[in-house]
Amino acid sequence: MKPGDYVLNLIKDAPKNRRTIALIRHSKRESFNGIPDELRDSVGITEEGIVMAREFGEAMNQIPSVKRLLLGHTIAKRAEMTAQSIFDGYCSESQARILGCEPTITSPVVNLDNLVKVRNTFGWSNLIIKWLDEKIPGNTLRNPYEYTDETLRNVLHYPGLGRGELLIIVAHDITLFPLIYSLFGENVKSIEFLNGIVISADTNIAEISFVDAKNTFKTERRIS
């Protein structure tokens, strides 16, 4: 499976008479080595990451049910570059538009200094486990369930997305970990570049799916 294939397959299977929303991790990024934590939003994607994202966009052309493609991203450079590279690969400017930082995907980090201290104490993987178990104070990371509710509300109520249209939002693994845990009850250990959740929504119900090499999850959530 190539990066992004799980999401592409879910999009292909999405009902044509619904809105489709994909919230995905960015493409392969440059190393964080030597980059202060407060400057990590400035880290972009690698040349390989650009190719991966462009190929993802090219594959979108093989999904005839997509009437229009909208691309949003977080403020991080690697998310913006991924969205632009997907757009470049899609190469159908009349049927695609980059929205910028819309809809709003906020960071779950409340205090970066506190986060760095906790990460240095427990390590990244154990930090995520403790966070999802609600054992990290709210002055460091937001409650994962509250964060999931806000994120889903922001994407599901984004205006201007019609039936048969696709909204892809490029975010981060720290965005997706709490959503996957809150929605499916599973703590996945890692999320591949360009993988994420796919939402198929009508007026009242959102069907939400996630697939990787080990898991296949699907659930429904009422839109309120």
Rank of each mutant, 00 (worst) to 15 (best):
E192H: 13
K2S: 07
L152G: 00
S31W: 15
V188P: 08
P159Y: 07
V211D: 04
N154C: 12
N143A: 01
D5P: 00
R119V: 13
I168E: 08
V110W: 11
I208D: 04
T106H: 15
R78H: 13
L39Y: 02
I197W: 15
N111E: 09
R78G: 10
A201P: 13
T82Q: 15
E48T: 12
Y147N: 02
M52T: 09
Y181A: 06
P108V: 12
P36V: 03
S92E: 08
P36T: 03
H157V: 02
V155I: 14
E38H: 03
K117C: 10
T104H: 15
F210E: 01
V51R: 04
N143G: 00
G57I: 00
L23V: 12
R142H: 06
L115D: 01
N187Q: 09
G100E: 06
S85A: 12
F122G: 01
L115F: 12
K189I: 01
K77W: 08
R163Q: 12
A206F: 08
N33M: 05
A59H: 02
G57E: 06
E38D: 04
D13K: 07
I86V: 13
N139Y: 06
Y158Q: 10
I205R: 11
E186K: 05
I223W: 07
S65L: 07
E186G: 03
E150G: 06
R40I: 00
D133I: 15
I24E: 00
I63Q: 10
G34T: 02
N187I: 07
T140Y: 02
Q62L: 04
I169S: 08
G44A: 02
R18N: 10
A22P: 00
L39W: 02
L71S: 00
L112D: 11
D88H: 14
T151W: 00
L71F: 13
T74N: 10
E47W: 01
N154S: 14
L99P: 15
V211S: 07
I11P: 08
V170T: 12
E146A: 09
Y181L: 03
F193Y: 09
L141Q: 04
L156D: 09
L179M: 10
L69V: 07
R18F: 01
L156S: 05
D37C: 01
I11L: 11
T121Y: 15
I197G: 11
I128E: 04
N120R: 15
D5I: 12
F193P: 00
E220L: 08
E80A: 02
E80Q: 06
I128W: 00
I174P: 07
S209G: 07
L166T: 09
K218N: 06
W131L: 03
I168K: 10
A59D: 08
I24M: 01
E207P: 01
F177V: 05
I75L: 12
E220D: 05
N195P: 05
E80D: 08
V198M: 13
G44W: 02
D113Y: 04
T216E: 03
K135L: 14
E58W: 07
P3H: 13
